[in-house]
Design a protein around this nucleic acid. Sequence first.
DNA 1: TTGAAAGCGCTAACAA
DNA 2: TTGTTAGCGCTTTCAA
Lengths: 340, 340
Amino acid sequence: MAVTMRDVANAAGVSPMTVSNVLRDVPTVDEELRARVLRAVDELGYELSLTARQLRSGRSGLVTVIGLDINDPYFSALASSLAAGFASEGIHCVIEQSRFNPGGERGALTGAHLKRFDGVVLSSVGLSYEQMDSLDVNLPLVIMGEHEAPPRFDHIMMANIDGSRQAVEHLLASGCRRVMMLGGSETTTTHGMAEARTAGWRQAHSEAGLVADEALVIPTPHYTPTEARTLVAEHLRVDRSIDGIFAVADAIAIGALAGARDVHREVPTELQVVGFDNLAIDTLLNPALSSVDPGMDWMSQMAVRLLRDRIASHGAEHESEHLVSPARLVVRESSGRSEA
Amino acid sequence: MAVTMRDVANAAGVSPMTVSNVLRDVPTVDEELRARVLRAVDELGYELSLTARQLRSGRSGLVTVIGLDINDPYFSALASSLAAGFASEGIHCVIEQSRFNPGGERGALTGAHLKRFDGVVLSSVGLSYEQMDSLDVNLPLVIMGEHEAPPRFDHIMMANIDGSRQAVEHLLASGCRRVMMLGGSETTTTHGMAEARTAGWRQAHSEAGLVADEALVIPTPHYTPTEARTLVAEHLRVDRSIDGIFAVADAIAIGALAGARDVHREVPTELQVVGFDNLAIDTLLNPALSSVDPGMDWMSQMAVRLLRDRIASHGAEHESEHLVSPARLVVRESSGRSEA
DNA sequence: TTGAAAGCGCTAACAA
DNA sequence: TTGTTAGCGCTTTCAA
């Protein structure tokens, strides 16, 4: 019923192979035949079956970017940046959520589903080390993440500890003495993002000759702004000594700013706040949010290159690469009161 | 090289057809054979080729959601909502950007690419009527959009004019007399989103017995917060009579809040601001942003049902559906000063 | 209830 | 430079 390559071939008076060669820009095709083929394509309204091409050639020309939740501003910024990078390499990419689509039956992380693509970029947020380790995919896979991943995978991460250290060092230098570690984790066993950033918080304290009060580590189980808002308001009400907040993510920091407002603590005069991610919205907030810039553009550029090369070398053996993007603190209105 | 259905069939001592039946949950398979097949699948680590299945059956089990830019907070909220809806129907969906991937050669909107999917949800933002009209796809397609779309497509839109009218009516009732129409459009010929929302602005004025000053319609060519911020600051500096801003989208309104701050205009006492979209972040802003709620969850629910039914009825003829979601104003801190 | 044959639409490999 | 042959891995159809 649909027009096939054979129909085009018949209309143009050539073999299907020649049509295929024209459509794949194989350079050895005679100019006149090429013209005849393209005319027939046009007249018949032919559209290539990419499914059939993929079955035969093993290539889909498609890459997928998988993250927990597209509505998370960090992931949507990352996905957008990756999409721009892939587009400039002529690679088409789609974006998927692992939320609602876990490894289960028809999920985004199953081998059967992933085989539709030539490569995968996986944001590790929300995935445990074990979940990643159990992935048994046979295609190029780059993990982008805030925390440790199994060493056999290519992995691009940010300087969690150093970035956090910079942020808290800045808060301490700006006069804070009681800095809440919002979204932090007290456990030091695993290598998650929250743990690493909490380690930076501790490190900054000890480098300043201060003792970090572990009671100031406040986990945010769901990592939502609303949850952070409530938690911050509660803690600020009870403990008026808190004079700084370092949040593990800007989404959390934005909630913290709202929570501080709820209990009438003025930022930055009474309370200083620093986040992590350097989202575009930070400059628009009132007060503008100080944040650690994780170097997202650099990371997505690296991810695109790495995946492009892995795909091009078609499964050749390789050492896995592990890159770390340097972090850089950006001070805005929410912190940096200069007096002590 | 990869394990195929035939390998599984051989290992289980059955025909490939039986393996296929087991994997598709065809109920007429003997329990013992089913068990043998599943054991063989497990032992061999077999993974179905969804590509081959699609080539043969014509179904991919996949739907795509296409929007201009995932980094836009409205689209990412919409996509997330749609993904949740599709997941609850057992349909897997991917998300694509039309930005960087236009109709060109290998774009997201080409027929060849779209044929990979069983259905499409297309956000019309950033697409002209003509671009949509030139789409010649043969699969279920639902357009979700703020503006008019060709009548042959199923279309779910929001009550642009009424929502805007409510917003501006509220501003006028709250004492505003010079309400900037930010992101509006002076042309009344086309049926775009900006035009419809500007029409609501005019309507509210005439219903209040006032004359809308067309000089207060300020277009934002790129629809970015930063651009809006600059424009608002410039206009407020020049024209101190402006006492209200209605922005066509919350992203724009957020920029407007920042711009007002840049020129030290206090919201809501000196200037009231209302946006459109009711994004989750609105409640976290300082001041919290009043906004028109377009009923996104309702719209995405409708889109999911409609597409699911279109897919199930496999190309049967149908009247196209056109649904409009009612809009509802949510007043927060940025507007609603009660004195006149 | 299970299996054999055929072919979805394309391209790799080879032959002309 | 073009064409022929074969088959990617599955499911539709029909026979057993």
